[in-house]
Design a protein around this nucleic acid. Sequence first.
DNA 1: TCATGTATGCTGTCATACAATATGCGAATG
DNA 2: CATTCGCATATTGTATGACAGCATACATGA
Lengths: 227, 227
Amino acid sequence: MDVKDLRIDANPTLVREHALAKLRAAIASGLYPPGKRLVERELCEALGVSRTSVREALRQLQAEGLIEAGPRRNISVAHVSAQDARDIYDLRALIETDAVRRLVENDDCEVIKSLQGMAKTIRKIVRKGDIPALAEQAAALYETILEGSGSRIIAETGKQLLKRVSYLRLASMSAPQRLDDGMAEWDAIIDAIVARDAKAAMSAVRSHIVNSRDTILATFEAPTKAE
Amino acid sequence: MDVKDLRIDANPTLVREHALAKLRAAIASGLYPPGKRLVERELCEALGVSRTSVREALRQLQAEGLIEAGPRRNISVAHVSAQDARDIYDLRALIETDAVRRLVENDDCEVIKSLQGMAKTIRKIVRKGDIPALAEQAAALYETILEGSGSRIIAETGKQLLKRVSYLRLASMSAPQRLDDGMAEWDAIIDAIVARDAKAAMSAVRSHIVNSRDTILATFEAPTKAE
DNA sequence: TCATGTATGCTGTCATACAATATGCGAATG
DNA sequence: CATTCGCATATTGTATGACAGCATACATGA
């Protein structure tokens, strides 16, 4: 064992970061749906931390666009309009196709192998039909592709967009036929990457995102909800 | 005068937002150069506000990527490596060409007129050689184009990238020949927009950004500084 | 019924306090 | 004289309590 291995790099998890993660998860899971008003004291109680930490987490969420301030100083979970959703997916298409192109050009076997692994994991989850787990794994796959671009900037920017639609992604995946189609699309992406075919990978990513977008937009038109 | 005119919509400027703006400006102007360590108490004193407000502003800057946390809990102004700069400009090229395409397609006379006005203002500033003012106006021009896309998402994402290079833009504009070249490029962009020629506008934007990028990257190679 | 006053709730801001950790300085030691 | 140890100091992370300014809801009175 090397001295390097003694290194402690995991910071003792800042309370505010913990709070941030919990709040993000609450929004992504739909526990706090768009428009839900967030009252600081309630969050303090729910999270078991002080207002100081909650407020700092809120500022960060605000900067990320996941929550927004109303006219009366109220904070609520950000609404994502159909137009916003469309714009986010279109921008993702731009950015992620670029990311995957770079990824293929970088030709990093490490990354590509891990992508193959993730595809396998996803296939398993799809068979089980565990939607929440699938949403999480899918996000991980997208993030891996973004990071595979080798560009910190692309990765950060792309991930920020992903966070803004994490709630929607759950809805998208609940559409019946979408699961199988999605799996096929993921396979196409991975296959193209493995074949080091940048053009095919770009086009596979683009159609996957466009299909996801259209699925999401369909849910906007059908207001659902038989409550 | 109408009752509407009585409306007070300017929120009494939150202290934390004021602090945020000041800090951003300090970073953009080079007063706080990359790597500069930011000590909370010093900021409190300099800004004349409490630690609470400073900290909330810092969290926001952190989310925007303008500052970063070191291994020792220290906060300092984010370094922008040459690679980062290249990536930011390349991503800007992607996003802003898309923005200008949408802008032309939207065909909003209001926006186009205001762009022409800004180009005129810029020309005046260029003649005076007032670099800081120019940097500000140029940023305003880019932001107008981004907003002209009609997409909140594109506008926000693009602006975030702009903020991350505001410090570099100052350097870029100090390059001797760059001023005139830049002016010509801006003219080309505006002309294409006025002519409602989306393709030409996109290519004008792309070459402008690529040229800016290359100017910046040149300053990275020549470490400058005759201090 | 309507208008006014009052209680209540929430956010924004500040001041303090304290623990944990990092830093720097000086003293003790070989 | 060089090293090491230990202590004072600096800085951040977090919690608490306080209070003003608004906004809302409620009650009261004409």
